[in-house]
Computed example of a mutant assay.
Amino acid sequence: MRKTDTLQDNRDVITELRQKDSHFANIFDEHTQLDQQINHLEKDLVKHASRDEEIEQMKRRKLQLKDEIYKIIDKNKLQSHA
């Protein structure tokens, strides 16, 4: 996968993986939920100020999930082209 590929660029692969791989579906869903929670908290300035550490932990977890998602996508692409 090119470094510039985004999740949007891989939506067909993601759709396929979510249907056939329950682990992938779970981590993708968790990533999506974290993204929504982080965005919500960052928009609420009062909550954001009191939850900076929690937000940072969420961002770290989201990044771990994203790395795992891309590894699975890459592996699937390699298997598809083999």
Score class of each variant (00 low, 15 high):
residue 15 T to I: 09
residue 7 L to N: 06
residue 69 I to T: 04
residue 78 L to Y: 02
residue 61 R to E: 02
residue 82 A to C: 10
residue 34 L to F: 13
residue 31 H to V: 07
residue 3 K to S: 10
residue 17 L to I: 05
residue 42 E to H: 01
residue 19 Q to M: 11
residue 31 H to I: 10
residue 19 Q to W: 09
residue 32 T to Y: 14
residue 79 Q to I: 13
residue 19 Q to C: 04
residue 38 I to A: 01
residue 58 M to Y: 04
residue 5 D to L: 08
residue 10 N to Q: 08
residue 77 K to M: 15
residue 14 I to D: 04
residue 46 V to F: 04
residue 49 A to L: 05
residue 50 S to V: 12
residue 59 K to D: 01
residue 2 R to E: 13
residue 73 I to D: 05
residue 63 L to Q: 07
residue 70 Y to H: 15
residue 62 K to Q: 15
residue 34 L to I: 12
residue 48 H to M: 15
residue 81 H to C: 06
residue 33 Q to F: 13
residue 7 L to T: 06
residue 41 L to K: 08
residue 55 I to G: 01
residue 75 K to H: 12
residue 47 K to Q: 10
residue 82 A to L: 11
residue 73 I to Y: 02
residue 66 K to T: 14
residue 56 E to G: 00
residue 54 E to Y: 03
residue 62 K to G: 12
residue 7 L to R: 06
residue 26 N to F: 06
residue 26 N to L: 10
residue 30 E to V: 10
residue 29 D to A: 14
residue 29 D to W: 09
residue 59 K to T: 01
residue 47 K to I: 11
residue 36 Q to K: 14
residue 24 F to C: 04
residue 45 L to D: 09
residue 65 L to W: 00
residue 72 I to V: 11
residue 63 L to K: 03
residue 78 L to G: 12
residue 9 D to M: 06
residue 59 K to M: 00
residue 62 K to S: 14
residue 61 R to H: 05
residue 38 I to E: 00
residue 5 D to W: 04
residue 63 L to G: 01
residue 59 K to G: 00
residue 24 F to G: 02
residue 27 I to E: 00
residue 3 K to E: 10
residue 54 E to V: 07
residue 41 L to D: 06
residue 55 I to A: 00
residue 39 N to I: 11
residue 5 D to R: 03
residue 24 F to Q: 04
residue 75 K to F: 12
residue 20 K to Y: 03
residue 77 K to N: 13
residue 77 K to E: 08
residue 35 D to V: 08
residue 19 Q to F: 12
residue 26 N to P: 02
residue 18 R to H: 05
residue 69 I to V: 04
residue 42 E to L: 06
residue 50 S to H: 13
residue 1 M to R: 11
residue 65 L to D: 02
residue 67 D to R: 12
residue 60 R to D: 03
residue 69 I to W: 01
residue 31 H to L: 09
residue 18 R to N: 07
residue 6 T to R: 10
residue 31 H to K: 09
residue 6 T to M: 08
residue 62 K to H: 03
residue 13 V to E: 13
residue 78 L to E: 09
residue 14 I to F: 10
residue 74 D to Y: 12
residue 54 E to W: 01
residue 51 R to T: 08
residue 67 D to L: 15
residue 16 E to I: 09
residue 70 Y to G: 09
residue 37 Q to I: 11
residue 4 T to C: 09
residue 69 I to Q: 06
residue 25 A to R: 08
residue 5 D to F: 06
residue 25 A to S: 07
residue 28 F to H: 10
residue 54 E to H: 05
residue 17 L to Q: 02
residue 78 L to A: 14
residue 11 R to E: 14
residue 21 D to T: 01
residue 29 D to P: 08
residue 1 M to H: 11
residue 19 Q to T: 05
residue 78 L to Q: 11
residue 6 T to F: 07
residue 82 A to D: 13
residue 32 T to P: 05
